[in-house]
Amino acid sequence: MVHQVFDRRAVSRHQARAAGAFQEFSFLAEEVADRLTERLEDITRSFPIAVDLGSHGGLLAPRLRGQHGIETLISTDLAPAFAARSRGPAVACDEEALPFASGTLDLVLSSLALHWVNDLPGAFVQIRQALKPDGLFIGAMLGGETLKELRECLVDAEVELEGGLSPRTSPLTDVRDLGMLLQRAGFALPVVDTDRITVTYGSALKLMQDLRGMGESNAVLERRKTFSRRNTLLRAAQLYHERYAGPDGRITATFQVLWMLGWAPAENQPQPKKPGSATHSLAEALGAQVCGVEASSPLDDTSGNG
């Protein structure tokens, strides 16, 4: 049985509430959509049937129109109000229960949706099964360092004023886990890396307002079901400014984006070599020193940038 961390009904409600004015708060989703599109440009393949999983109303569709041989791009969202914003084919569905038949898709993209999924390994398995052999999955989700500044200040303010803690922010996946999860789901040639996007705000209260407008409000099952105390939020905002304000008085907020790529297995794919079959060491290639043994052709580092 999958451990339930997130209230999926709350996630859907938050997204539905955000859908109407999302364009006012979509800067982060737009930036990640642009970066995802750039990553896809490096792949010289055609993908006739593609899905944008968790599309925020079809953000990727105008970016990919006429690109990469995409003939059909289906946008999906958990909240029907978000799905209804898409200008192309769209369906409201749960990322934990995909409606696509096995082996029917050439490409699955997902931009900032999977961090609200309870069964991430199961979602990866469903994505891989929906892909045709040699089909591609590229995803981006928020990672564990996201909003670390806000988390810290909320915790300290609540302990100081209320004498305890409540789950206010989402537990997020670590980059080290993703490669293993993709392999367990059956993806071939998985690749995982991370970006950090730093945003400045006039105050922590404006940051909290933006998170609500993005549809990213707290949806942890064990969250406090009543409104947060005003004095606790004001104290958190004060601590945030004291600790993270720059010379211009603006605070910084960190969003960590975890990137993942994997292929559905196919017979004609390149295969990793067996351990021990290499004819040259990584140390030789890098001119590095490994465990005190100097490589045969070390690089001459005279830059003084060490």
Rank of each mutant, 00 (worst) to 15 (best):
L150N: 02
G179H: 13
D42Q: 11
A283N: 02
F227K: 08
K273E: 10
L205D: 12
E30L: 11
L142S: 03
F124M: 15
Q126L: 05
L40I: 01
D174N: 09
R196A: 14
D195V: 07
L161C: 07
F255C: 10
K225G: 07
I43G: 02
V199N: 01
L109H: 01
G135L: 03
S217R: 13
F25W: 15
W259V: 10
L299R: 15
A140S: 12
A295I: 01
T169S: 11
A295T: 09
P167C: 09
K132F: 06
R184A: 15
M141A: 12
Q271Y: 00
A266P: 04
N218Y: 10
G246S: 14
E149A: 06
C93F: 00
L161K: 09
G246H: 11
V191K: 10
S110D: 04
P247Y: 01
L64V: 05
D156F: 02
F47C: 07
T226L: 14
E162I: 08
S12F: 00
L261P: 00
V125Y: 05
T76Q: 09
F100E: 10
Q126S: 15
G179T: 11
D106G: 04
V5F: 01
R151H: 13
T232Q: 09
G262P: 05
H56E: 06
D52K: 00
G186I: 12
G179W: 02
A81C: 07
S228V: 05
N305P: 00
V125T: 12
L109S: 03
K225D: 14
S296K: 13
L131N: 09
C93Q: 00
L109N: 04
G20R: 15
A84R: 14
T232E: 12
T173Y: 10
L120Q: 03
E41T: 06
A219F: 06
T194V: 15
D134P: 01
I49F: 05
E216Y: 03
V11P: 02
L239Q: 10
R223I: 09
Y240K: 02
A237I: 01
K148P: 00
V220S: 05
D106I: 04
T200F: 07
P121I: 04
L286S: 02
T44C: 00
L150W: 05
G304S: 10
G306F: 07
S75P: 04
G202V: 11
G144V: 07
F187C: 11
F137I: 02
E242F: 03
D248L: 03
R151Q: 14
L64F: 09
Y244I: 08
D7M: 04
F82W: 04
L233W: 09
I43Y: 04
R168F: 12
G20L: 13
